[in-house]
């Protein structure tokens, strides 16, 4: 991969929940167009790391710089910064009282200077992209998990973010629906979207990632190209973890 400019720089990031030290001096740079996959055991701090990036969790120490702007210094409007960072959740979190089209167009209509027609046109093209145009007027309760997650991805893309954060996007899905969601994510990666993905889908990580980060107990233990991490892991903790998730 050609060396591109850094999009997100994380410096000495720390996060405590009360006495619990969940993230310990994390340093990480995500470059433009890069697909970074974060793996690691349950409770290692993967979700917390991702949620600190758009400050759904408040870091307790360190600095995060996004597109050259510090998002941790409270000088800048966090809402404006979030408009450029899409997030996809394990539990989809579609707005349950709104139909699919309303879910996708709400934030652009309220936050961007565009007309309803423009927002709807763009929503329809996003629905085409995730293969769900026919669901435009359905309500979330009428969709399968895989469909919900693809709509959630479309909703995040509607704000035209510069980076997409995924927190275990396929973990709540029935196995036969995982493929649909992963293929949408693969398309995004191919288009050059910068992505930070927490997942347990090791096959996807190997295929789609430019870089794999292995976290354990709040630290980045090992990182590198997927072939290095999966085929020649250096740390015993990485080896143990991969052994457990791949051979069971």
């Amino acid at each position: 991969m050609p060396e591109l400019k850094p999009l997100i720089e994380i410096k000495q990031l720390n996060k405590h929940f009360g006495k619990l030290h969940v993230l310990k001096n994390i340093d990480l740079t995500i470059h433009q167009g890069e697909v970074v996959v974060v793996i690691g055991p349950s409770g290692s701090g993967k979700s917390t790391l991702l949620r600190c990036l758009n400050r759904l969790e408040e870091p307790t120490g360190g600095e995060i710089i996004f597109e050259g702007i510090s998002i941790t210094d409270n000088e800048h409007d966090i809402n404006k910064l979030r408009e450029n960072m899409g997030m996809v959740f394990q539990q989809f979190n579609l707005f349950s009282h709104m139909n699919v089209l309303e879910n996708i167009t709400l934030a652009p209509k309220k936050l961007k200077k565009i007309t309803s027609e423009q927002a709807e046109k763009r929503a329809i093209s996003l629905l085409e992209k995730v293969g769900l145009v026919e669901k435009a007027t359905s309500y979330p309760a009428q969709l399968s998990g895989g469909q919900k997650q693809r709509i959630a991805i479309a909703r995040a893309l509607a704000m035209e973010p510069d980076v997409m954060l995924f927190d275990e996007p396929t973990s709540a899905l029935d196995p036969e629906m995982v493929g649909d969601v992963l293929s949408v994510m693969n398309d995004l990666a191919a288009e050059g979207m910068t992505m930070a993905i927490v997942t347990h889908e090791m096959g996807f990580a190997r295929e789609a990632a430019d870089r794999v980060i292995f976290m354990d107990e709040g630290k980045i233990v090992e990182e590198g190209h997927p072939e290095k991490i999966f085929d020649k892991p250096e740390h015993s903790r990485t080896k143990d973890f991969l052994h457990r998730v791949i051979h069971i």
């Binding site: 758009n54 759904l56 809402n79 979030r82 408009e83 959740f89 539990q91 707005f95 909703r155």
Partner: peptide
């Protein structure tokens, strides 16, 4: 109301008040 609803709204860049009004209170 599921906390995820507020988080999803905030993650899109919607301010707290707007998220409350459009997402949480109707539910």
């Amino acid at each position: 109301v599921d906390k995820g609803q507020m988080e999803a709204a905030r993650s899109l860049g919607m301010p707290h008040g707007l998220s409350m009004k459009k997402i949480v209170l109707p539910q």
